[in-house]
């Protein structure tokens, strides 16, 4: 079965269509905002508009905190941590041209113990 679909909306290498196939033929569907809103609608009884708005605002609150210089600590899941990177020499990999990379602030994610343990349990169930 060939369901290796690439959306016509995909731009700049970003695949909008999240359905894809692994080498082993099973289909995977990534969790998206739409699926999360659907869950709030089904499980918690928010109406569709409320559910969509809630999911959007949930991520917006995290972005706002990070944007204003605050780390975000979600116990049981993980921490979003801001890091300041100093300027460093860089290079355009295509042309080989030297281009300095300016100092910047970046966000990193440090998964919590509980999430790491759950994900490792998945690894344990896969034979490598």
């Amino acid at each position: 079965m060939h369901t290796d679909r690439v959306s016509v909306f995909a731009r700049n290498g970003a695949t909008v269509d999240t359905q894809r196939e692994t080498g082993h033929g099973e289909k995977l569907m990534a969790l998206t905002k739409a699926a999360m809103a659907e869950m709030l609608f089904n499980d918690l009884g928010l109406n569709k508009r409320e559910a969509k708005e809630f999911v959007e605002q949930f991520f917006e609150e995290v972005r706002l905190a990070l944007e204003s210089g605050n780390d975000v600590k979600l116990s049981g899941f993980g921490n979003f941590v801001l890091r300041n990177k100093s300027a460093r020499p860089g290079r355009n990999p295509k042309t080989g041209e030297d281009i300095p990379i300016s100092a910047r602030r970046v966000v990193t994610f440090r998964p919590g113990q509980k999430l790491k343990a759950r994900v490792e349990a998945y690894a344990g169930s896969q034979q490598q």
Binding site: T18, L28, M29, A30, L31, T32, K33, A35, M36, M39, L40, D43, L44, V55, F58, F59, L74, G76, F77, K114, L115, R118, V119, A121, Y122, Q126
Partner: peptide, 19 residues
Amino acid sequence: SLLESMSHELASGERIEIR
């Protein structure tokens, strides 16, 4: 529930994509 669904997805070996 949102955080649990995200953890569950990763613990099932799947991805999360939030545009």
